[in-house]
């Protein structure tokens, strides 16, 4: 049997590792997006009370390696009697960590948001929440599309860190297979191919969204 045949026979393990990574990625990135949006909303208004602590928190997260946050959640929280298994600690860390990055991306774009639009919305009697949800957020998300795309790729790559806190995902699958059959090169080439393919697909999707917003005159393709 060639090494590639061995891998083909073990395809189920790859597949379940891949699905596990995609599940972690999908869940945590959705949560991160929501967290980013909520943080942006909390920074709204002329003098939001939470602005300072929130900014410190966001900047702090951005100065931290992702794995350290996963460590805090996985190894540190039990000190306070909160016990998360590796999977949830990983998803939680990814969500909070990348949520902060999303918030920072949104905040940067919010700074250049035309104030005239907000005055117009106020004049039409929009409430703060409605205005944020219907007017500000959609525009900011469309405008920051390329940065969001970048962040998605970073988040995907960060999922691999979770192998260190024993989460069974794609890189763990390659690691196990290469340990069992002693074919590390082939096993890792396949796994890197998976990550690469997902990155490329995400890039294509982001580009397609670019056409969508270009049609609405948001920017030039």
């Amino acid at each position: 049997m060639t090494n590639w045949q061995i891998l083909w026979d073990a395809r189920d393990q790859f597949w379940s590792g891949f699905l596990s990574t995609m599940e972690i990625f999908g869940l945590s990135i959705s949560a991160a997006f929501l967290i980013g949006c909520v943080m942006l909303f909390m920074l709204e208004g002329t003098r939001p009370r939470l602005a300072l602590p929130l900014r410190i928190f966001i900047d702090g997260m951005r100065m931290l390696p992702f794995l350290m946050l996963a460590y805090v959640l996985y190894y540190g929280l039990p000190t306070f009697g909160i016990r998360l298994n590796a999977w949830w600690a990983g998803v939680g860390a990814l969500a909070v960590y990348h949520g902060c990055y999303f918030a920072e991306i949104f905040r940067g774009s919010r700074l250049t948001f035309p104030p005239g639009q907000i005055e117009a919305a106020k004049a039409h009697g929009f409430t703060k929440g409605k205005m944020f949800l219907r007017l500000i957020l959609p525009q900011i998300v469309m405008q920051t599309r390329p940065l969001i795309g970048n962040q998605l790729i970073y988040a995907l790559k960060d999922t691999a860190f979770l192998v260190i806190i024993t989460v069974r995902e794609l890189t763990a699958a390659a690691n196990n297979l290469s340990g069992t059959y002693f074919i590390p090169t082939e096993a890792f080439i396949v796994v890197i191919g998976f990550y690469w393919a997902v990155s490329i697909v995400m890039e294509i999707i982001i580009k397609q969204c670019g056409r969508f917003s270009a049609k609405r005159g948001f920017d030039h393709v």
Partner: peptide, 20 residues
């Protein structure tokens, strides 16, 4: 490839694959 490959995966790959 380098931009899409997680560092953990790359490190393991080099470490396990080089001896072969």
């Amino acid at each position: 490839l380098a931009r899409a490959t997680p560092l953990v995966t790359l490190t393991l790959f080099i470490f396990l694959s080089a001896p072969t």
